[in-house]
Design a protein around this nucleic acid. Structure first.
Length: 514
RNA sequence: GGCGCUAUCGUCUAGGGGCUAGGACGUAAGAUUCUCAUUCUUAAAACCAGGGUUCGAUUCCCUGUAGCGCUACCA
């Protein structure tokens, strides 16, 4: 039973890959790497009507951004190609025919209208129509036709599909790596279409055929596929591939932060958080979807958050921050939860905060330079790194950091009146004039260099530190927020500090009506 | 409706026949501070319900309830 671990992520290019899909890919990837196996990317584009241009490229870029490296598949190549189902089209029919041959499937000539009529009739009786052992006896299919009739219909080009002939009264006890034993009764299942009238296989057939041909060892996918597991298992058996059938694991779904149901792409724009790894513009509607990348999340933070949605290392391990390598090392399907997990945008921000704190100040500074450049601001890397060190713990994102740090780069052009009035008292004007003079005498401004002097000066006047620093702050920054004022002064420099202070001394008396 | 899956603080979760049911996010309070944050401390906050099994169930079993998924010639 020494089988090479080979897993696949097999999305449908019907739009941008959303975070639920990314998590499925991630769990596949972690499992593959944990066991030294292969992670394949297969594109399941058997439904041409739902194909969205650009979706496939998006999927590849999104995986790349998340650090999920594809070993084999679309965009990479490999021995089992092609990896795009539309390009494998000629492959599938023989398997559908093989199933007809062996009596496991049959031709069905019912038109869409006829089936709709069946459904309507059932609905009138408050029943649900299903194509199964009962109903197939009176429907238009090869089971009710002579061989000649079938031949003729086929020769005449009558549209048909091939359906799986679901066996009757079989109790199935199937094994799922996450859920344990799952039970099904085949009589309650329907005769699913395997091969469509347009000559394409359905998901079910293509999926099983490709997983077999690509020697997939483990199928790890979302819980929405659990109901079709019996069909797939039966297909492996009917095709004679039972011996090499992959093992199955059905992942719990990601649910909306509030309200009912699974997370959908609409939720993001509605509730103000991204559901996609990267921004995406719908080519048809022009609708723009936010992405974690563009919203300023680090891929490591995004991946870390996703990994912990439905999985945890257990064993009393209360860590929450993990590198990809650590995740690979610790991952196991047995520790994946069975229940769906509600997504929490707030905690996602917290993860980003944590990763921001771990980043090197110089690295953050480099990222921030882009924002400065966009605003035409020049600021040297060294001082920018100091700014980052001073400010990063206050924020979750680099962009946010930039917004909070503006005063380091440009003098305030307007002042928050409320803060000025609160901290610049009538007597502050005189005090700040003296303070200006005091600072002018200092060779450099910094906590180390002048904190003692300032304290002495204040002590002599019988004033508290805040009496001085608060008006100083609103003068230099423009509002009552921020780090230690002498750290600020050190970074913006003596000259600039004094210029700003002087401007306030000239301006503030009129603001406070002095 | 039918079928399947699931059920611990508001949320993500640990745990497991006997525990003060643990952590994290968020929330509130306090401490620190020149301000605002950060940080630290503290607090509030959970085993869906009913039956069993058992000396003892939140844990095991059953039933109910609720939630989720599937029920297309979509994936």
């Amino acid at each position: 039973m020494e089988r090479r671990v080979r897993v696949r992520f097999a999305p449908s290019p019907t739009g941008a890959l959303h975070m639920g899909g990314v998590r499925t890919a991630l769990f596949n990837y972690l499992f593959a790497k944990k066991h030294g196996g292969d992670f394949l990317l297969r594109i399941e584009d058997t439904d041409q009507t739902r194909y969205v241009p650009g979706a496939e490229e998006y999927i590849q870029e999104a995986l790349k951004w998340c650090g999920l490296i594809v070993d084999e598949g679309v965009g990479v190549g490999g021995d089992c190609g092609p990896y795009r189902q539309s390009e494998r089209k000629p492959l599938y029919k023989q398997y559908a025919l093989q199933l007809v041959e062996s009596g496991n499937a049959y031709y069905s000539f019912d038109t869409a209208e006829e089936l709709a009529a069946e459904r309507a009739a059932c609905e009138a009786r408050k029943e649900t129509f299903i194509y199964n052992a009962q109903s197939r006896t009176h429907l238009k299919n090869s089971l009710n036709m002579s061989a000649e009739e079938v031949e003729k219909a086929l020769a005449d080009g009558v549209p048909y599909v091939i359906r799986f002939k679901m066996p009757e009264n079989e109790e199935l006890e199937l094994h799922d790596l996450i859920r344990g034993e799952v039970h099904f009764q085949t009589s309650l299942l329907d005769d699913k279409v395997l091969f469509k009238a347009d000559g394409m296989p359905t998901y079910h057939l293509a999926n099983v055929v490709d997983d077999h041909l690509m020697t997939i060892s483990h199928v790890i996918r979302g819980e929405e596929w659990l109901p079709s597991m019996p069909l797939h298992v039966l297909l492996y058996k009917a095709l004679g591939w039972e011996d090499t059938m992959p093992e199955f694991a059905h992942l719990p779904l990601i649910l909306k932060p509030v309200g009912n149901g699974k997370l959908s792409k609409r939720d993001g724009n509605k509730m103000g958080f991204p559901v996609f790894p990267m921004a995406f513009t719908d080519p048809d509607t022009g609708e723009i979807w936010h992405g974690y990348k563009e919203d300023g999340y680090f891929p490591e933070a995004f991946v870390n958050m996703l990994a912990l949605l439905g999985w945890n290392p257990g064993d009393g391990d209360e860590r929450e921050i993990f590198t990809m390598d650590e995740l690979i090392e610790m991952f196991s399907l047995e520790r994946v939860k069975k229940a769906g997990a509600r997504f929490d945008p707030e905690k996602t921000k917290w993860f980003n905060h944590k990763y921001l704190q771990m980043k090197d100040n110089a690295e953050i500074a480099e990222m921030m330079q882009e924002y400065l450049k966009a605003d035409g601001i020049e600021f040297d890397n060294e001082r920018l790194a100091m700014v980052c060190g001073l400010m990063k713990e206050r924020v979750n994102f680099v962009k946010e950091l930039y917004d909070e740090c503006k005063f380091f780069f440009v003098a305030p052009t307007e002042y928050v009146e409320k803060d000025v009035k609160k901290f610049w008292k009538p007597e502050s004007t005189e005090l700040m004039k003296e303070f200006h003079a005091l600072l002018s005498e200092q060779p450099v401004l910094s906590k180390e260099a002048c904190d003692a002097t300032i304290n002495e000066w204040l002590a002599a006047k019988g004033l508290g530190y805040g009496k001085c620093m608060n008006p100083f702050r609103v003068a230099v920054i423009g509002y009552a927020k921020g780090p230690h004022m002498l750290d600020v002064a050190e970074i913006i420099g003596k000259e600039e500090t004094l210029t700003r202070l002087q401007r306030a001394i000239d301006l503030f008396p009129t603001i406070i009506g002095q």
